[in-house]
Design a protein around this nucleic acid. Structure first.
Length: 255
DNA sequence: GCGACAG
DNA sequence: ATCTTGTCGC
């Protein structure tokens, strides 16, 4: 994940992060135990890896929704990944991974809390998704590296960030489905407040990786024909809650 | 300095 | 995120 020694960029921060240096694969770096300070450095060093354009011939058939549910009692969490057929919105695959939180919730850093469970869930998917829909921000993040960017860069898949709440202030878009207003941070457009249903609060869409904002919003609207949130997010959220609440139990036998 | 702050 | 009682509407 860390920028492979970028030529002409001998950043000194990394040299002072033993935990981070010790890892060698991009993936282990993100799952490795890092401090909040190191997490911030990791984001700053990784932001430039985000690709803001859509691959040629992008015609997604399967979209995977990602979401994490938390258990009432303590620090246990359930990550859910659900593949949905974009044309029919039918669920075609789903995986759940239970884990114990290894990082506190800190605005701007929650990818470090959910990634350790989300990545394994994605890995266990049998159906290959063409695009990922994360619940949270992508570029609409103070360091331009929200959860959606993190997941996208790690998997290399086109990824979109759809948050239920914006990080900063925003101008309310028109009242109709499809109306939107740009999300601006420090004079830069980082996403959109998009109305997915008439009269409901907008969702906050931003680029995660390998997709442009227009294409991202277009897909989010297609995935949200009836409700405020995309079906991908709704399906993952529902599955996670069922497991988290104990209404669904999983147990592997053998290997 | 003070408040606000994705899930 | 999660807890919580009631309420409005299809």
């Amino acid at each position: 994940m860390l920028p492979e020694p970028v030529p002409g960029d001998d950043a000194k921060p990394v040299a002072d992060l033993p935990e981070v240096r010790r890892t060698d694969s991009a993936r282990s770096r993100l799952t490795a135990a890092v401090s909040p300070e190191e997490a911030v450095v990791l984001q700053l060093q990784s932001a430039h890896l985000v690709e803001r354009t859509t691959p040629d011939g992008f015609a997604p058939k399967i979209a995977a929704g990602l979401d994490v549910a938390y258990t009432p009692d303590s620090d246990r969490l359930v990550a859910a990944a659900v593949c949905v057929d974009i044309a029919t919105l039918a669920t075609v695959d789903s995986v759940v991974v239970r884990d114990v939180a290894g990082f506190p919730y800190i605005p701007g850093l929650f990818a470090f809390r959910e990634l350790p469970a989300l990545i394994p869930a994605l890995d266990r998917l049998t159906v290959e998704p063409d695009v990922l829909v994360c619940d949270g921000q992508g570029l609409a993040h103070p360091r331009r590296f929200g959860l959606a960017c993190h997941v996208g860069v790690l998997t290399g898949l086109p990824t979109i960030g759809v948050g239920k709440q914006a990080l900063g202030r925003y101008e309310p878009p028109g009242p109709d489905r499809g109306d939107w207003k740009p999300l601006v941070d420090n004079g830069e457009t980082v996403g959109r407040a998009l109305r997915t249903q008439h009269g409901v609060k907008p969702v906050f869409v931003s680029i995660g990786h390998r997709i442009d904002l227009d294409t991202a919003c277009d897909l989010v609207l297609r995935l949200s024909p009836e409700y405020r949130l995309p079906e991908t997010t709704r399906a993952a959220d529902h599955l996670g809650r069922e497991v988290s609440a104990g209404r669904v139990r999983v147990q592997d036998v053998g290997d």
